[in-house]
Every structure is written in structure tokens, then in C-alpha cells.
Write a protein that binds this DNA or RNA. Sequence first.
DNA 1: CCGAGGATCATCT
DNA 2: GATGATCCTCGGT
Length: 191
Amino acid sequence: MPPNSIFRELEKGALHAAPLLLGQKLIHHTSEGVTSGYIVEVEVYTSQDAASHTYRGETTRNKAMFMGAGTIYVYFTYGMHYCCNIVAGPAGSGQGILIRALEPVEGIALMRQRRGTVTDRNLTNGPAKLAQAMGITKALDQKSLHDATLWLGDGVVPGEIVQTTRIGIKQAIDMPWRFYVAGNPYVSKIS
DNA sequence: CCGAGGATCATCT
DNA sequence: GATGATCCTCGGT
């Protein structure tokens, strides 16, 4: 699906758009160079969802999640990690899609440099890992994919898609809001 | 391969 | 003051 179409899908809501993001290419331009990868794993978070940062309403931290489809939400957690979401749905609805894993495409040498000594399979197979490999920080928070250094590009048709429960949460653990490409070696964890 | 424990701090209660 | 949409290391299997 071409990039322009994915924005229309994002406007329809996070749960609708999440599986459609699989196979799309996420691209980041920085002064260090260009990195990109195909999205192979995502999770949905909404304001009706006890596991979501938006469950208790808008705060300074989660403001981006209420800014409408195509906004970038980057949060800092565990004292050392950044994670990247693509906001979906109408402005004010507080829903988004966490990018959990990428299959590296461009800038793999730069990804290795940013990540330090890890095996290639460990470059981007987790939300904080891919943020580090791509050079994603809070500088991108509240920016739009339409006019930031981070955007979506032409991807590939993903293989079979698996829908299952989310990872690393303690609330709403039964909601099947995780989607990944079956058999892809960069998926963070096989269910 | 798997599970336990520590790192480290912005954000929220 | 407590916690976390995580990652890494280390030990056991």
C-alpha cells in the first residue's frame, strides 16, 4: 500500500490501521545518515485501555497521542529507553500504534554503530532497540510524519499476519492487540 | 533456549 | 515515593 493511503487508514483508527502498517518502511534521516526498516511488529493502545499511557487522560507526557493521526509519540521509560508510536484516529481520541520491531533495510552499519556490540538479529527486534538503532529520541515527539525527519515510505507486502496479546504490560493483558509478520526473524518474541 | 535481577530517571500519585 | 508499552548480563538447562 502506498504511503499516502496509509495516512487515510491511520485516520480510521489504531486497531484498523495497525495490521496495515506491517510491511511499510519506516525511514529516518539524521546528520549521521539514513536508516530504514520494514515494520514487522506493532501493538495498539487506546484511551479505553488500562495498559495505555492515555487511559487517565491527557498529560504533558502523552500530549502527542491526542494530536491526531500521523503524529509521532516518543516516550522515555525505565530511565534509559525511548519507544516510538504512530498516533491514529481522530484528534483527541488518544490512540496510537507502538512500533515494536523492524527488519533493517538501509543504514545497517550506522545501526550497528548506535547499538554497540550486538548481533544483527538484535539490532531492531524490540521497541527501544529500534529507537536506538534508528536514532529516534524525544526530539521527534509531537512532530508529524508528514513534515519530520521520520516518515513512512514504500514497503513490501507482508506475509501471513499473526494477531495475539501484547507484551510487557500488567493491565488488559488479554486484549489481542499485537500484530506481527509470521516467521520474520526480527519479531521481538514469538507467541 | 529460558528466567531472574539490576540499571536508571521522567512522570505521575 | 513508586513505577514502568525495556534491555542486558548471567546462570542454569
